[in-house]
Design a protein around this nucleic acid. Structure first.
Lengths: 176, 176
DNA sequence: AACTAATCGTTTGGGCCCAAATTATCCGGG
DNA sequence: CCCGGATAATTTGGGCCCAAACGATTAGTT
């Protein structure tokens, strides 16, 4: 992550291509910085805290969610973590083979699968999470307490907008 | 993306596991909502605008960056897009095979590769980007203009914190 | 009981993702 | 000119990622 252009540089480059007919540059700035920030923070955490425990990002999220809410059903892990059940299946297999968690078929409903950490998994999280939080503090160190609360609020509004799905409805232009 | 717990629910669950020794819950809230939001928005855009053009997220980012700054060197695309050159190599091959862009060896320096869109690639972006921006506006519709500017500012502070790398230095606890 | 539809988790196939190893090119001595 | 170190992009190998297909279980209907 390095090559940054200023906002107005990008704006004028876009305008040169499209004649800024009806674009919302503020929305564009929010979106592009959202992905840049998430990517940068994620890569940073993967290369520092998580690398020390030999965990990928998604594996950590799965362990984290399970740690907090165990026992928890797989579909809830996927919903909480924001990835598909297909992805989760593979990651669960990986983590189970390392002895960090266990799958057990649901007793009342044979279709469901409950996930719990093993003692080893719980030890890992108890050791890892404080370090993780220290890095979270580190990457937010330029934001005041009020800023952090406000930033959290903005992010939650984005999430709400996607989930409420009140789409402005893009006319279905036909594909390539 | 569905299962949300409130902030305080999560806080007390974490405290129950760790005894909230020295945790920064505000930093935790920023980080977790950052990933949730980025993930939600990305998945949404992939399933709406990008699916209509049969493009993955990363493929779109590559096309976008190239569209704006062409001709551009591969290492700059990777830096701008926030992924590794290894990832880029594969995506470039995919997009080149679809006739959307071209690689040309640098004339002055034979190690470098310049990337440009083909006319077909430029037509695609010119058609696609307005739709993309409409969705960007859609997902930010609960934020006022001032909010969007402020949110952009906060996100850029996160990026700066990662890049400046003034790490608080987590004591290197040993691995699993 | 038997059929049907709904709802789980998993598997499959193709693409993205990164670190590390590899190949190719450049540049500066000697 | 040739050698070696530095710097490009690419390839390799293993893991994540999703939609769609699949197999298993449950629930509703008759």
């Amino acid at each position: 992550m390095a090559g940054h252009h200023t906002l107005s540089e990008t704006e004028s480059a876009v305008s040169a291509r499209l004649g800024d007919l009806d674009l919302d540059f503020e929305a564009m700035a929010v979106a592009s910085n959202l992905f840049r920030a998430a990517n940068a923070v994620r890569n940073h955490l993967e290369r520092t805290v998580l690398a020390r425990a030999d965990l990928t990002w998604t594996a950590f999220v799965v362990l984290w969610v399970t740690w907090i809410w165990e026992p928890i059903e797989t579909r809830q892990i996927a919903a909480e973590g924001g990835f598909s059940k297909a992805t989760l299946s593979g990651v669960l297999t990986t983590l189970e083979s390392r002895g960090l968690l266990e799958r057990t078929r649901g007793k009342s409903d044979g279709r469901l699968v409950d996930v719990s950490l093993t003692p080893s998994g719980r030890r890992l999280m108890k050791r890892l999470f404080p370090d993780f939080n220290t890095e979270e503090r580190n990457v937010t160190r330029f934001l005041s307490s009020a800023d952090k609360q406000q930033a959290t609020g903005f992010l939650r509004e984005l999430i709400r907008a996607v989930e409420k799905e009140g789409t402005i409805s893009v006319p279905p232009t036909r594909s390539a």
